[in-house]
Design a protein around this nucleic acid. Sequence first.
RNA 1: GUGCCCGUAGCUCAAUCGGAUAGAGCACCAGCCUUCUAAGCUGGGGGUUACAGGUUCGAUUCCUGUCGGGCACGCCA
Length: 585
Amino acid sequence: MVKLSELPNFRVHLSQLLQQAALTLKVDHALNIEITRTKQVSHGDYSCNLAMQLAKTLHKNPREIAGMLIDAMPESAYVEKIEVAGAGFINFFIKDDAKRLYLNHILQSGDRYGASDFGNGEKIQVEFVSANPTGPLHVGHGRGAAFGASLANVLAKAGFSVTREFYVNDAGRQMDILALSAWLRYLALNDVQVPFPENAYQGEYVKEMAKLIYEAHADRYVHQPAVLLDGLSEAAHEEVINTDEQLDRMIANAKKILGQDYAYIHNFVLTEQLGDCRNDLMEFGVEFDIWFSEQSLFDNGLVARAVRLLDEKKQLYRQDGALWFRSTEFGDEKDRVVQRENGHYTYFASDIAYHLNKFERGYTKVINIWGADHHGYIPRVKGALQALEQDPDKLKIALVQFAVLYRDGKKASMSTRSGEFVTLRELRHEVGNDAARFFYVMRKSDQHLDFDLDLAKSQSNENPVYYVQYAHARICSVLAQWDGDAASLIDAETDLLTGPAERVLLQCLIDFPDTIEAAAQEFSPHLIAFYLRELASEFHSYYNSTHFLVPEIPIMEARLALVMSIRHVLKNGLELLGVNAPEKM
RNA sequence: GUGCCCGUAGCUCAAUCGGAUAGAGCACCAGCCUUCUAAGCUGGGGGUUACAGGUUCGAUUCCUGUCGGGCACGCCA
């Protein structure tokens, strides 16, 4: 029997053994020892390709080097045997009783199993969603939300100190357009007829906000609309308004007419939309630590400061009346405007201030989750940080591709024009939160996602969400029928678990922390989804091949100890993805 | 036109930052419920990893080119 107080991390342990063995080979350069899981049982449990890596520098046959490494390796209480295989792989077979230590550990740690100190408590920020509060979240935001939330959970589980942040674009033109849109709808409710611009916000939710204002304040915000169309072409009075210039003119006129009241309208629509967004996300299981206001960057002078700092570094110049940042000096395709000819700062300017602020808040790593259509934006932001003498590599951008909905095998419309897009809320109500969360992270984030609505809805074996949840529910059902004291399973004689399915399952459970670590390192929560499906699959197979509630008490308890451990891991894994682990289905 | 991403089974996708015989699910075919939930299981067929070269012990992965698809190329956000 192996006796050790501490739970062994096999990969770390084996890596240390190799490290020691490598000393005898007198290699002068740094070693990159990677321990990987094997794909085939005949190759053992873990494998290392170090011998092949060293073949070139040592001018020796990899298999010969592997033999030397094995000879030089210290004895280990965990290792059953070591073999040289193939071109020079070193394959490790772990002792079964060493693996079984994990069952005891999982039963004791329960909800905490899977956690590691991989991240060393490093302060890391994940900024995601950050949708303009100008309308309901749509299915594209949903993927960013699900991905970001899952990634943040994974990072936290892997030992990082994670802050989840939503950047609120509460400054700028889009909010003005929304405020104008709502006010125009409000005027219409008061029987004041003004043409509604085609490029204003058309959605029904705008009319609803107008109605709220009307119900609370009646005609309190009705002002002379006559000058609203001042400065617009004569045609606009009769015909359509659809250019940016016309829209901006109307906004300016509205501000003039409303005076102090404009702030009320602006603030009202912002509060409404942000509240709606927050509710939507909360129902989706996505929560944030910080809602960071873009407007606050202006109010606190941080935008002006960031621009001034760039100027001090001689990174700005004036041309055509605008202020430009020399981003081409830092790899961008062209220089970018930070302050427009009309004196307004660009979105880029506040973004520079925002990112500088993030760095100054002490995060050692800052992760931005962006829609893939923003990829061209990366060089200028990193360039600006570099210009400000910050380390641009601390900023990591995770790009999330669009999700395309399919219904009846056909693309479902998600046009943002005319307000007829599919909202996240609609999706959640149609397929449920669990399916939505799971489907969103089933694919690598930087790949297009075909979201099959019919599949997500189907309560059948085709649906991968139910497949995993069903495994959990089955276990709960078995445990309920056993009706014993779960705590007693810690003393089960787990050395009775010698069947092939049991050994595979045990190794699968041991892999859980490694999977989380990999998902954290590669920003790939989809690895968790794949892992869970694999574990569920192994469990279902075990369930069908082996009866758990057998008369022989020790065997029953041993199997239940394994099954209970699986339950913990399924639950913990689903939790990372924000998916429920139901006890009954 | 320029830049970035992608191209893997009929379909949707994996493949542990160059590793061993490229794996799942769906679909298709053949089986399994008087036994802890059949939302399950077992078995089977299915591949020149778009194409052509190159780098090396070894390539789906890295480099070059071609073809095909997506996105981005504003004093918008």
